[in-house]
Design a protein around this nucleic acid. Structure first.
Lengths: 341, 341
DNA sequence: CTGAAAGCGCTAACAA
DNA sequence: TTGTTAGCGCTTTCAG
């Protein structure tokens, strides 16, 4: 296995200087180089399968072609990888790659990760949360252009993208209204995060817009996972005046609601329509009948993040930056039907 | 924001030469340097918050401190991130970082990803599948030390780690036997992957070892997701001589089985015990009652991969390499009970 | 005990 | 139209 060819190899083999070879291979503008020369050099480079050493290139150009991606957890939540996927695709378009660090709830890794990024001369840093959060990134983040995904700071210090919680919740409830439901409950959560207030507000707004009654008893808050959803659903559905449809804070709660509906001898869609939030496919596609839900625009946010970052790298700017809000598209499956009777 | 300090800055500020500073900061062995000098240099480096530029270091040392991680899909399956997590932690221990590429079922990204890795002078490459597969990595992978995770080649060309499918399936079934079950069904799959034959074989072996009857009607194969699991479970449970326990190819099929059990008016654990495979927490913890299942040792495999890779980098070797088999630990939750009566 | 000098592979002024 | 030279920030002989 022979050594990788260097610029010098190409130069020697083609009979031109390293400089000329570099000019040709980089298509440096404003250089008048004989077409023959160009062609020879290109051919030789090809023959040798020459590829520039990006370490050397980066050292010289002060641009590593590398972006640090700091995720607070790819471990716990299962849809964060779509952010990465979107980011990676956008990075690839620009010839860049992602250095990944996942802190997985270990805050001490945050500083260390950023340091490791800076040591490797990343061109910029993406700071990604797994769900919409208000964050305070370590000061070291300021050493490079950075963007926030699914997160924002109180100061509008970095460009940031977050889902439109309120609007998306309204869309969800409106879908239920459209199906004919007039008694719609909300299985909410108790976490101290923007989505909590946002989705609740969206629910109430949508009811008001539709001229539907708001029933305190139909609006419960529980832990935002399956068992919480189960309890919440039981609390609401055990009542004689139970709603015919439930909007759930997330898909995991919706999963719990499915079990509650079944335990009551009822059927999802037929007796109780359900809409979730997140579109975690394992649940939304795995559940029976399939779960109608709001898809978090993670892929798109990942793309946006890298593109924004790259333009920031090319044209530094100081902000402030208003958070960009992304719509969550409705994904229709089979958990919404018309109310009976 | 002042510029990052370089070795030269430390040298000038401390009054010693770049060489000496380098020697001190790298603790180069066999160098007799005055303790005072050492201390001064260390102090100055500290004051300036000096950190070596890894691009420069890498260029010189021919070691980038970077490892390419090529995943065939972090998108579709939801537990692959644990491999990454394990890999990242092991890499961090050694001062290395992961460059990530996820091909997400787009094979053309594979070559491109590896090329991008090589351009960046990665020290080695991890080629990770999302489930146990026989793969044929592109030849370009040979350009660097590489290991395979959750994958192996026919030629034993790279070190590789895969789950012990047969043994783990036996463990699962043995658990059911221990709970008193004598009629145990298997909801299998139809994919052309090693796990298919492996888990099936484990199931049969475990029955044989326990002296239990093998019933063709209790062994069905379906698509390996929730709806397949539903159909498979119905096929088995609709029979008068239905089994009292089901071992499922994976958690998603187990999820479908839950719905089937409920649709038949039965209860999981009480009437039908269920064991899954994979331990996808969204399902295994989200389901009601919690799903007992076999945990794929992804984190451990990730760690193993990096450690193996690093030692391969330090001490190249040619193989052949037998695949290393990892046990899947049993995770007990609440879906296994004793049979009635 | 310390430092000068060469060079990793590349780009960019500047000459010719 | 092409080449010389310097240097990105670092490590590593080799001298002193």
């Amino acid at each position: 296995m022979q050594m990788k060819a260097t610029l010098r190899d190409v130069a020697e083999r083609s009979g031109f200087s390293i400089t000329t070879v570099s000019h040709v291979l980089n298509d440096v503008p404003g250089k008048r180089i004989a077409p023959d020369t160009r062609e020879t050099i290109r051919r030789v480079a090809d023959e040798l399968a020459y590829r520039p050493n990006q370490l050397a290139q980066g050292l010289r150009r002060q641009r590593s072609g590398t972006i640090g991606f700091l995720a607070d957890s790819i471990l716990t939540t299962p849809h964060a990888h779509k952010v990465i996927s979107g980011a990676q695709d956008a990075a690839a378009e620009a010839g860049s790659m992602l250095l990944l660090v996942s802190t997985d709830g270990r805050p001490e890794l945050e500083e260390r990760g950023i340091t490791a990024f800076l040591d490797r001369q990343v061109d910029g840093i993406v700071y990604a949360a797994t769900y919409h959060r208000i964050v305070t990134p370590p000061p070291s983040l300021r050493a490079r252009p950075a963007v926030l995904l699914d997160a924002r700071t109180d100061a509008a210090e970095y460009p940031s993208a977050v889902p439109d919680e309120v609007g998306s919740a309204r869309t969800a409830v409106a879908e239920l209204v459209r199906a004919g439901h007039r008694r719609i409950g909300y299985l909410g959560n108790v976490d101290d995060i923007p989505a909590t207030a946002g989705r609740l507000a969206g629910y109430r707004q949508a009811l008001a817009e539709a001229g539907l009654p708001w029933q305190p008893a139909w609006e419960v808050a529980e832990a935002s996972e399956s068992t919480g959803g189960y309890r919440a659903a039981r609390a609401v559905l055990d009542r004689p005046d139970r709603p015919t449809a439930l909007f759930c804070f997330n898909d995991r709660m919706a999963l719990g609601a499915y079990f509650a509906v079944q335990d009551l001898g009822l059927a999802v869609a037929l007796d109780v329509s359900i809409i979730g939030f997140d579109d975690q496919e394992i649940i939304s596609e795995g559940v029976h009948p399939g779960l109608t839900t709001m898809r978090l625009p993670h892929y798109e946010m990942g793309q946006w993040g890298i593109r924004t970052l790259l333009s920031l790298i090319d044209a530094p700017s100081d902000g402030p930056y208003d958070p960009v809000h992304f719509d969550c598209p409705l994904v229709r499956r089979a958990s919404v039907g018309s109310p009976r009777g």
